[in-house]
Structure formats: C-alpha cells, structure tokens
Design a protein around this nucleic acid. Structure first.
Length: 585
RNA sequence: GCGGUCAUAGUCUAGUCUGGUUUAGGACAUCAGCCUGCCACGUUGACGACCCGGGUUCAAAUCCCGGUGACCGCACCA
C-alpha cells in the first residue's frame, strides 16, 4: 500500500546516469531538443566504440569479412532500384470524424480481406476507389475516411545546388554493400561465400520516435551481407553450433497468437524448417552469443519470426532477435533476413551492371548441346541485302526454339524474317563447362548498435550497498583503469601521475583523479563501470607496490608496479582474474 | 498525428492551485581551500535554474494563448 505508485524503471535510471556522466543525451537540448536524435558523450562514444570493436572481433575477423564505408546520401536511382522508394512510404488516411490516422493498406487488409501484397500495389487513386467501393470505415468510430496521402519515411534531399537530382539518406547500410558489389567481389577474388560489413549511420524519418536510444531517426547500424551460392547453401561451421539452443517463435507458433518461445537446438530448427538457410541459423547463434558477451543472459533473449506481411519487401524469411528490456519488454536488437538475390538482381536490372559470380567446378563438366548455325550459301540468295542481319540473328538464336518451330510449323521467325529448314543446320557439340555463373544469395544479420550499447548499460546496472554500479564486461568499459593517489600531499600525486602516464603509454584507457576522498573517487569509478582502480600510497614510495581494487567485489590486492602493465593486459584479455593480479590484502 | 499529464541549476526537487511575502529555497553533484593513511567523511566558500514566443496585469515561475520537447494511452515503427 505504501509502495510508490510509479517506481522508476531502469530506463529512467540509466538515462539519468547517462546524462550526468556523459554517456548519451537528447540532441539539440539548448534548442528544446529534436526527438529521434541522440548525442553520445565522451563515455558513450567510447562505449559504442567498444561495442563495435567487439562486433568486429565476433563477426568480421573470424570470417575474413570485408568492412566498407559508403556514403550516407544515396541517389534516388539506387533506392528506386532497391525498392525502397516504393516501400518506404505508407499510404495514410485520417478519419473525418475522430481525426485518427490509419494506414490505408492495413485497413483494406483487415476490413476488405484484401491480401497485403495486393493492397501494396495500388496507387493512391486506386486505394481511394477501393475504400469507396468496399465501404471501408474508420475502425475506431466508424466515421468516413478522408483522402489518402503518402508519408515518406526516408529523408529526402537534393544533390548539388542547381540540380534536380533527388537524393535520400540511406535507410540501411546494406544498400551501400549491394551497390558496390562488383568491386567487392573482385577484391574477394571472385569467391563465395564471403561477407561484407558496414557499420555507420542510417536515417529513417520515423513518424513518432519516443524511446530514447531505442528508436532514433538517425541511428547506428551494423549490416552484414553474407553472400553464398544458393546451390551450395551448406554452412561448414554449423557443427560447431548445432547443439546450441535457441528460444524460437517461428511463424507457425506465432500464428497461434501465443508468444511463448519454443526451445530448440539449431539442428532441430533446421530440420523442422523453422529456419530456411543454414547460414542464417549460424548467424543467429552467433548473434545470441554476441549479446551474451555484452551482458544479456540467454533467457532474456529470443528470436521471433516475421509473418509474411510484417516482412520487409526484400525478405523471404525474417527473424528478429529480441532481448528483454525493463521498460519496453521484448525489444528488437537485430534482424536476420534471407534477402535471396533480390537486391543484386534489382541493381543488375536497373544499372545494367553484371552481378553474376563465376564459380569454377572442381572438375569441368561435359555438356552435350545442340547448336544452330546459319548456312550463308542458302541465306545469301534468299535474303540478299538483309542476309548479314539474318546470319547475326540466327547465330544468337536459341537452338531448341528454332528446332521446335521448324519441326512444328515448318519455319522459324527471326524477327520479321521467315527462316526455312534449308537456311540452318544443327550440330551436336560437346562443350566443356568449367563452372557456372549465378547471382549469389544473401543472408543479412543486421544489428542496431545504439540498442546494443543501451542494453549493455541496462544489464550492467546494479547496486552495491546503495551505490550505483555498472558491471560492464571488462572489454566494454570506457575507462579501463583509474589511477588515484591515496592523499594529495607528500609527493604521492606526483608518483601517481607518473604511473598514469606510463599506463597511457602502454595503451590503456586510464583516468587520473586526485580530488576529494579516495572513497568518493572509487564510487565515481564504479558508476561509470571502470573495472580497476590503482591506488598509490606511502608504501608505493618505499617499495614500489600499489593496490588494485576490483569494481564488483571491492576487494583489493597488492602488486609490484613493474608487473602492473603485463598483469593488466592479461586481465583485459581474460587470461587472468582479479585475484591473480597480486597478493590479497 | 490525436487525447491526457507535464516542463524550475549538472541531477532530483520546493514554490504554481490562491499573481506581490522570492535578491526563486533545499538536497546531491561540481569547483577552490582546509582536513583526510582505502570506500560518496567533516568543514569554509564558490558556481549554477523558472523551456521558447506572445498576451492579461501596477506586478507573472505562478493566469491565458501559441510553439517546442518529454511522459502515458491510441495510431505508426516497412
């Protein structure tokens, strides 16, 4: 009864701490703020860098993936090709009575039982006509609906001062990879499977972003595009992970309107066809392990499949990786989509660039093939001046079609020219095929970096004796080591500064502070997740030893200054625990 | 975008209803001293705020209107 009505949730606590200590805060605060934009302060910038470094170690290095930085502004042609210009807009209409706004395509789906894809294809005029014809009404108050308008969810701009050229802020980093595919595959020396990664900003003009670092208009994304041969979809690393379990909500479970996850091994998920491609399953396991290293335990993670109408336009199968956050419940942190060859095909068709990959067979294959060849001696007299054209046409013609036509109708039409059997001859050839050409398929794990950084903070947050503590994994801590003189007199600060400099030189992220009492400084270090504090005292002056203090246990050990750097390196590489850093005090 | 609630230093907040008693009060944090021999010690001092614009009034942090932003609900989140 006496409990406060609204207990402040972790988001509130974290964002207060984040503002105060410089992790992140809303941008443009002095002008009242603009929602959907976030500024990373000094500590947040470091934290985000650490998350990205971890990401590289986890996904890029082991697979020799290529990392890329392409531009954020994209010309309209590229995004028209990718389908985003069409897909990143929503037809919306307002109810004339209650003024609520709705997505028109959703209304048609729900009220008129029109399929989602059908509704998507309609123009504004056609939508209006359908609404009229089918009598679609406001689902809330039953009022009449007003005119439909598109809301464009990409940021639009123009490129160059006088040009009419339309550009958009990229809504995903992925397109930068597809657009540059030709160069990338060349750099990869033509071999699939291979992965490309792009981390960077992406822009989406969300209608009403409201959740701090969780939903931003400008956000950090890490897209992996992993290209493979659809005829060789086998993932060789699968045995390493197939016994790992995933909390899964496949579409067939989700349709039953339950969000109870089933626990299955990767192997079973593939057998049961819950996950359609091995590579995707593999990356889902890695994603789960990755989140664990950021501090999110297994039981706070799950994967939920997107139903067909929830999926992005390019996706054949999609799972969201969700983690549990105190304020928002299950929250997406990564999306795993099977994009097939959709994007490369689209860019190939629109740009004319060849996006095929050639893969050599281990042994060349012999292929029997019928070839049609023109007979100039007969064609010349028949077609006279057009003879050369006819020869060219016939040499490009498909032998099977020509034969079929001649067999069935007695002639074959090459454009407007009527070809008779005597004009051609057929030969059987054995051709040696050394490989095949195909457009690679792609699975895409795509992470929201801002959400990851936030999740790391939320899961690190805790209290010890009423003091706030960030138990960040040691490789994520913005500041690795703090150097403190026990008191600020008798030459102790000088000795401490000396040590501070030495550690900086060794490459550690070190902080030095001599203000206030030692206890206060420890408390401050705990609050920003600094795992270790080094304290210089009178003993240091006489025997060159220092105390090391552990953030989580507040225990202390004593170690020699000369061993410090080496010991710390091993500690941050997880080769040594805190207790092994010196003699327990 | 709609409806409701709200906006005071770095942070949390008192004051707003009932305009003047306010050079806007406090706590914590920060900074400068003194003190201090290992966990937010004590002490002296300093810095620091009424979201923006308009209106009502002799007088506005306080009342009214508009804007911006935040929170909650609805819608949206491909």
């Amino acid at each position: 009864m006496l409990e406060p009505l609204q207990k402040s949730d972790k988001y509130e606590i974290i964002s207060e701490l984040a503002r105060r200590r410089g992790f992140f805060w809303p941008s443009y605060e002095i002008y009242g703020g603009v929602s959907g934009f976030l500024t990373y302060g000094p500590l947040g910038t470091l934290l985000k860098q650490r998350v990205e470094t971890k990401f590289r170690e986890f996904f890029i290095k082991p697979f020799k993936m290529l990392e890329l930085e392409s531009s954020i502004i994209m010309p309209a042609v590229a995004l028209e090709a990718s389908g985003h210009v069409k897909a990143f807009r929503e037809p919306m209409a307002a109810c004339l009575e209650c003024k609520r706004r709705f997505r028109v395509d959703h209304l048609l789906r729900d009220q008129a039982e029109m399929s989602d894809t059908a509704a998507e294809k309609l123009s504004l005029k056609e939508l209006a006509a359908e609404i009229e014809k089918l009598g679609v009404r406001c689902p809330e108050c039953g009022g009449k609906l007003g005119e439909s308008n598109y809301f464009m969810t990409m940021f639009e701009t123009s490129i160059g001062p006088y040009s009419e050229a339309v550009g958009y802020g990229r809504p995903e980093a992925a397109q930068g990879i597809f657009v540059e595919f030709k160069r990338l595959i060349e750099i990869a020396r033509g071999k699939v499977p291979f992965g490309v990664v792009q981390m960077g900003h992406a822009l989406r003009n969300e209608i009403s972003p409201r959740q701090g670092p969780i939903r931003l208009r400008e956000f950090n994304i890490a897209d992996i595009e992993f290209f493979f041969d659809p005829k060789e979809p086998h993932c060789p690393f699968l045995p390493e992970v197939e016994k790992d379990t995933l909390q899964l909500i496949p579409a067939e479970v989700k349709r039953k309107k339950t969000d109870k996850a089933i626990q299955v091994t990767v192997k079973k998920a593939l057998e049961k066809d819950y996950i359609k491609t091995e590579w995707q399953a593999y990356f889902m396991v890695l994603a789960k392990r990755f989140l664990k290293t950021l501090g999110v335990p297994d039981d706070k993670q799950r994967f939920i499949e997107k139903l067909p109408w929830e999926r992005a336009h390019y996706s054949k199968q999609g799972y969201d990786q969700e983690i549990y956050l105190d304020r928002w419940g299950w929250t997406e942190v990564s999306g795993h989509n099977y994009r097939t060859d959709y994007d490369l095909k689209q860019h190939m068709n629109h740009s004319g660039a060849d996006m095929h990959v050639f893969q050599e067979y281990s042994t060349p294959r012999k292929v029997e093939e019928t070839v049609v060849s023109p007979v100039p001696a007969k064609i010349g007299p028949t077609f006279k001046a057009d003879a050369q054209k006819v020869v060219t046409l016939l040499s490009k013609a498909n032998a099977k079609e020509v034969k079929k036509s001649l067999d069935e109708m007695g002639h074959y039409m090459a454009d407007a020219f009527k070809i008779l059997p005597e004009h051609v001859k057929f030969t059987n050839k054995t051709i040696e095929e050394t490989g095949r050409r195909f457009i690679p398929h792609v699975v895409e794990p795509s992470f929201g970096i801002d959400r990851l950084a936030y999740a790391a903070l939320e899961y690190a947050y805790g209290k010890k004796e009423d003091r706030a503590l960030l138990r960040l994994p040691r490789e994520l801590a913005p500041i690795q080591v703090a150097v403190y003189p026990l008191v600020s007199k008798d030459g102790i600060p000088e000795r401490a500064e000396q040590l501070h400099k030495a550690l900086v030189k060794e490459g550690f992220a070190v902080e030095y502070d001599e203000s206030g009492s030692i206890g206060r400084r420890y408390a401050r270090a705990d609050e920003v997740g600094t795992p270790l504090c080094v304290t210089i005292d009178y003993e240091t002056l006489s025997d060159a030893t220092v105390t090391l203090r552990d953030r989580d246990s507040w225990q202390q050990v004593r170690t020699k200054v000369e061993d410090l750097s080496e010991n710390l390196k091993e500690y941050f590489d997880y080769k040594r625990d805190f207790e092994a850093l010196g003699k327990t005090i």
